[in-house]
Design a protein around this nucleic acid. Structure first.
Lengths: 165, 165
DNA sequence: TCAGATCGTCTGTAACTCAGACTATCTTGC
DNA sequence: GCAAGATAGTCTGAGTTACAGACGATCTGA
């Protein structure tokens, strides 16, 4: 059947071009984002992931390393040295959790918050640059759609990803 | 200034939660996609990237390894052993480019096209699973927006990403 | 024809990921 | 109160991966 079917016909009917593959588009955009973000975040320990840790440490109530690791999608061992670097730079600090002495609560220092404020502004400009091909309304739409997916797609519990801490 | 401003105020005004970070959402969705796709593509050499190579080798005219590498966002040395594996599995084949004897044109074998057809169907189901939190219209919208970005965001030449070969 | 660029390959090094062990601590059941 | 198992964070080591650089073959332009 496959051998007798003309190749051109196959291509059109059963095998879509790679551009229509969600994975390809997702990967291409993600790579572009990381590459651009790394330039802006070069001075921040941990790059884009360090930025996300710092953001999480600043907003909301302090949370444990492991919870944060799950939320950001990094291994717990990676989280250890990610925080090591940020702490060494004086941007975040680990405090023992009074309710559980095994755990450390992560919170940003004043320097960390100041650093985050200016970095977030620069990153926002990078995001706009990346989203430039889209109309303003489309940009907001894309952000919303991605956020909606990201906060629900954890397979085990539907909202694990959504709960920051 | 930073020290005298209440933390809560900082958080609301200048430091958005990580969930509003495009990079976080993009990363979370991308990780989820790769994790799901790898299950379906476990039997295919190279996993998701092998799938994209096979897809590109099937659709359109045959193209060189380097062009394909740029298009898929992988290093040329990675592309070499990626194709090695696919060729060893009998799914693609390298042919010398008659117009440039340095280059190899990549094309899928009949077995490769058959393999791709069934794998693409399975992958499409995975994609729908991942996009499940969205309404049907939103899914198409997200695909379109991502494709629009992916085909235009290459910094050097705006359409380099878009041109498959 | 010659210099420089390019294609694909190979090699080695650097970086990264992740399983597993370990200590300290919490929780549960008795 | 105590023992057994689970969990948080850290550390180590093994395995994988990415990527710079060199290389031969070939193309292109002067």
């Amino acid at each position: 059947m496959w051998l007798s079917t003309p190749a051109r016909y196959d291509a059109v009917v059963t095998t879509p071009a790679v551009e229509s593959d969600l994975g390809w588009a997702l990967g291409a955009v993600f790579r572009g984002y990381v590459r651009s973000a790394e330039k802006v975040l070069a001075h921040l320990p941990g790059g884009p992931r360090g930025f996300q840790v710092l953001t999480s440490a600043t907003t909301g109530e302090p949370c444990s390393q492991q919870t944060l690791a799950r939320h950001l999608g990094v291994d717990k061992t990676v989280m250890t040295y990610l925080i090591d670097d940020l702490e060494r730079a004086g941007l975040v600090e680990r405090r023992p959790d009074p309710a559980d002495r095994r755990a450390r609560l992560l919170s940003a220092t004043a320097a960390g918050r100041a650093h985050l404020a200016e970095t977030a502004a620069a990153l926002r400009r990078v995001e706009d640059e990346i989203l430039a091909p889209l109309a303003p309304a489309e940009r907001d739409l894309l952000r919303d759609l991605l956020r909606k997916l990201a906060t629900r797609q954890e397979p085990g519990s539907p909202c694990e990803f959504a709960s920051p801490c």
